[in-house]
Simulated scan of single mutants.
Amino acid sequence: MKERKFPHFETDRLILNEIQTGDQENIFRGLSHPEVIRYYGVQYSSFEETQEQMDWYTNLKNSNSGLWWAIRLKESNEFCGAIGINDYHPEYHKAEIGFWLLPEYWGKGIIAEAANTIIPFLFDHKGLHRIEAYVEAGNHNSARLLKKLCFELEGRMVDCEVKDGKYISVDIFAKIDNPNWHLPE
């Protein structure tokens, strides 16, 4: 079986490429940082535990159920965070988008720049019609970013998950491509 080439993108300021084994230290830094994981569904307390996340990125790609990119500064190749899709359902032409950044890169428009690069790729080359985003209620920064990216708030799932022993509510956002699109007959 022919190995698929991982899509690589460059923007004015960023490089979006495959997450590598050498990124594990940065993944750990992000997914153990209290401010990053405050509204994120995954967290790790040791570098070794982060191997689970590294395996998850690889398994998504190998099973064709998602793709996640490392976000790096073009000028210095510094790792900033990650963005990608999971829960890819080709039969329904939809997937879930997710993202996170190390705090020193917050407020610089990095996720918007990365998302504005991968979203057209997902619609045009992966055949997606719908991209969903699930945001913990209270995560105003992610909600604001999704609205800036033209995602629509579809509603709130009240007390739908448990985090730290408490029920949390989750807002669902979606971006639809080509509203007049129809399934082939």
Rank of each mutant, 00 (worst) to 15 (best):
H129P: 06
N77P: 08
I110H: 05
A70S: 14
I110K: 02
L60Y: 01
P120V: 07
A70D: 03
W68N: 15
R72N: 13
A115Y: 10
G84A: 07
W100P: 15
R13V: 02
I19K: 01
I131K: 04
K61M: 03
I97R: 00
L73H: 13
I37G: 00
K126S: 11
R72A: 13
D87V: 04
I97K: 00
Q24V: 14
Q51T: 14
G22N: 15
E78K: 09
G127R: 03
G81M: 09
P103S: 10
Q24T: 12
V42Y: 09
I131M: 13
L101N: 13
Y57F: 15
P103D: 08
E96Q: 11
F47W: 09
K74D: 12
F79C: 06
G22M: 14
G30E: 06
N62I: 02
L67K: 01
G66W: 07
R38A: 03
T50N: 03
D55N: 00
P103H: 01
L128V: 08
K108F: 02
G84N: 13
N59G: 04
I119L: 05
V36F: 15
G30A: 02
L101H: 07
F123S: 01
I97N: 00
P120F: 15
T58S: 04
D55G: 02
F123V: 04
L31K: 08
A112N: 06
E91D: 15
G66A: 09
L67M: 13
I83H: 01
S46N: 07
N62K: 08
N62D: 09
R29W: 02
S45L: 11
I110L: 10
S45D: 14
W106D: 03
N77Q: 07
N116R: 15
F99M: 14
E78S: 12
G30T: 02
S63I: 01
R72Q: 06
N86K: 14
E49Y: 00
G41W: 15
L128K: 05
E96A: 06
Q51M: 10
E96W: 08
G98Q: 11
E91L: 15
I85P: 01
E104V: 07
D23H: 06
I85V: 10
W68F: 00
N17C: 09
T50S: 05
I110F: 02
E52C: 12
P103T: 01
L16V: 10
Q20T: 11
H125F: 10
M54T: 15
S76M: 08
T58A: 10
L14M: 06
F123Q: 00
E75S: 12
K94T: 10
E48Q: 13
Y88N: 05
D124R: 01
